[in-house]
Design a protein around this nucleic acid. Structure first.
Lengths: 128, 128
DNA sequence: CTAAAACCTGACGTTGACGTCAGAGGCAAG
DNA sequence: CTTGCCTCTGACGTCAACGTCAGGTTTTAG
């Protein structure tokens, strides 16, 4: 398939796909005229790239761990990198959960108060 | 306290603190000569700002919800905003957890294989 | 055959949260 | 008083992940 079709299938812009190739995250076969052609597997590949971007990894980092995610060939060094990224994600989830709890506490108390027509109060932990 | 001390206490750069003020996230008393002075409460305030930034909110969004997080005064509109941001965080946590699981699966199988000296294999869900 | 649609490369523009530098003023210690 | 650190206000620089535009080629539909 050509780049437009891949873009349509993945919901990623054509520009982004060319950017991924520039970053060596994605490869393509070139036709004699220079047009990019992709195998069906490219769809999954792009989705994987998007997922890792969404997890906050940079293109540089993704480039580092992509080979082993794709092939399963894992050197001890790659394993360390994977573990480091997993731990970073864990930490991020903890941070997000803490923030979520903080917002949720405000939502819970204030929506209750609003419903009851009472003045709003908020837990001391939020008072700054 | 002056800006350098606040920076030291919060681990945030002086430049960042001035940026927060520019974004109206943080206020300061000015001395006659124009120097910024902060109350002790500013430390907690800066930490709150950092937490919200870390949760992926923009300065614009933080500006929108800060008043109610601080004072607990919540209008229905603010409540909607809070809820929207909480839901965004939830979604983000789900995405991150999915990615984490994917990395973890690779880590688990490959580290086992490495220990056993066997060739590495990876779950089909990861093969792209 | 021809026009539209898709593709190419190259290069500059964008956005957010600051970093960094210039030039000038403020403030406690010796 | 002056040395040295802190602070001030601009204002330009940075970085990532693309967006967008220009100018030209290729493919496809009729």
């Amino acid at each position: 398939m050509r780049i437009g079709e891949l873009a349509a299938k993945t919901g990623v812009s054509v520009r982004a796909l060319r950017y991924y190739e520039e970053q060596e995250l994605l490869v393509s076969q070139r036709s004699p005229s220079g047009q990019r052609h992709y195998a069906d597997a490219a769809v999954g590949r792009v989705e994987l790239i998007r997922q890792l971007y969404a997890a906050g990894l940079s293109s540089r980092t993704i480039l580092g761990i992509l080979p082993c995610v794709v092939t399963g060939e894992v050197t001890p060094e790659l394993l360390a990198r994977l573990t480091a990224e997993r731990d970073r994600i864990d930490e991020r989830v903890r941070d997000l959960s803490a923030t979520r709890a903080r917002l949720d506490a405000i939502i819970a108390t204030s929506s209750g108060s609003l419903a009851a027509g009472k003045p709003c109060e908020v837990p001391a932990s939020s008072a700054v």
